[in-house]
Amino acid sequence: MKKMPMTSVTSGLGIEVLPDLYCYNVQIVNIAFIGNPQESSEFILVDAGMPDSHEKIIEAAKERFGENALCKAIILTHGHFDHVGALKGLLEVWDVPVYAHTAEKPFLNGESSYPPPNTDAEGLVAKMSSMFPRHSIDVSSNLRILPEDGSIPVLPGWRYIHTPGHTPGHISLFRDEDKALVAGDAFINVEQEKLYEVLTQKQEIHGPPQYFTVDWQAAWNSVKTLSELKPLLAVVGHGLPLADDELTTNLDRLARDFGATEIPENKK
């Protein structure tokens, strides 16, 4: 994938959400490093950022875990271009397993492209979305399908939750012990359709980006599922992490009002 010129004021910002959960912003999207650098140089990467950003991600890993930083696996919340953009470049350096939900497989083995975007959704970014890559990538040789029981083989203590709607195989990661959530694009903390909000990263909880979401009822159900978990902190795909009352109150409101506030008029 060619490098995309979009960026934001938080590009390159890293936030230690927990000692073993680190959120790093790549232009307009967040990736997560799971692993405690005080205990080991090994880590798991969640999502793979924007196209042609692999060098920045590798450098961020070294800054976090040291020069001997060792990626053990990559877990994908889904396969949209801003979440897999650097994946092939990373795999040339880190030849590791890539875990994803079985329903996301066609978009990761070269078989299928994502549907065309909804350019009629409100906002300039939605109008621009026809220019965004939506073709499948092929990482078949590294791809591993996650078990049906919700476990993550390389990440004990965490489980994945199938949160479809934005894509058929979208997943979120949850740790019951401390109620930490990596939500991907199941919900986000910026109004992703509007260019000014993307550039400034104005905090505002929303459902998944409207232009690429394929099933709105499923997306609403996924938000309800995550709300019922009562997470205490969340790393989201777009926007700053959320925690405590700010997260629980706003996520409950989103789950309640989703039909009125999030679904584009031409999809109701």
Score class of each variant (00 low, 15 high):
168 P>C: 10
115 P>Q: 07
97 P>T: 02
167 T>D: 11
86 A>D: 07
87 L>G: 08
123 G>K: 03
78 H>E: 14
157 G>C: 12
57 I>V: 13
72 K>P: 01
79 G>V: 01
170 H>W: 03
152 I>Q: 02
133 P>F: 11
104 E>T: 07
156 P>H: 04
161 I>N: 05
153 P>N: 00
139 V>T: 04
67 E>N: 15
97 P>E: 05
73 A>L: 02
110 G>H: 00
154 V>A: 06
109 N>L: 02
75 I>H: 00
110 G>F: 00
101 H>C: 10
64 R>I: 02
82 D>Q: 05
151 S>N: 05
116 P>Y: 01
171 I>R: 00
118 N>C: 06
152 I>G: 03
104 E>I: 05
168 P>W: 02
54 H>W: 13
153 P>Y: 00
86 A>Q: 06
162 H>N: 07
62 K>Q: 15
149 D>T: 09
95 D>G: 01
133 P>D: 12
113 S>Q: 07
79 G>I: 01
68 N>H: 13
111 E>Q: 14
163 T>F: 01
114 Y>F: 15
110 G>P: 01
127 K>S: 09
127 K>R: 12
170 H>D: 12
63 E>I: 05
127 K>A: 14
109 N>E: 14
168 P>K: 14
155 L>G: 06
68 N>S: 11
113 S>K: 10
85 G>Q: 01
154 V>K: 05
161 I>E: 13
105 K>M: 13
110 G>C: 01
87 L>P: 07
109 N>S: 13
172 S>Y: 04
162 H>A: 15
145 I>V: 15
157 G>H: 08
127 K>I: 06
94 W>A: 09
55 E>T: 11
130 S>H: 11
133 P>W: 11
148 E>F: 03
130 S>W: 14
121 A>K: 00
60 A>E: 09
57 I>N: 10
127 K>E: 11
138 D>E: 13
106 P>I: 07
120 D>M: 12
86 A>E: 04
54 H>Y: 12
140 S>A: 12
78 H>Q: 12
125 V>I: 15
130 S>N: 08
60 A>M: 06
82 D>M: 08
84 V>K: 08
118 N>S: 06
81 F>E: 10
151 S>T: 15
108 L>N: 05
64 R>E: 03
120 D>S: 15
92 E>V: 10
65 F>E: 06
167 T>P: 05
94 W>I: 07
147 P>I: 07
140 S>K: 06
171 I>P: 00
92 E>C: 06
95 D>A: 11
149 D>S: 10
89 G>M: 13
62 K>C: 08
136 S>T: 09
54 H>D: 13
110 G>A: 01
145 I>L: 15
128 M>Y: 06
75 I>Q: 00
144 R>Q: 13
70 L>F: 11
151 S>F: 03
119 T>D: 02
125 V>S: 06
56 K>S: 14
170 H>V: 09
164 P>G: 00
115 P>F: 02
108 L>G: 06
117 P>C: 07
74 I>L: 10
144 R>L: 02
66 G>W: 04
118 N>V: 08
174 F>E: 09
168 P>T: 08
101 H>Y: 11
72 K>E: 03
59 E>T: 14
173 L>W: 00
96 V>T: 11
141 S>E: 14
173 L>N: 00
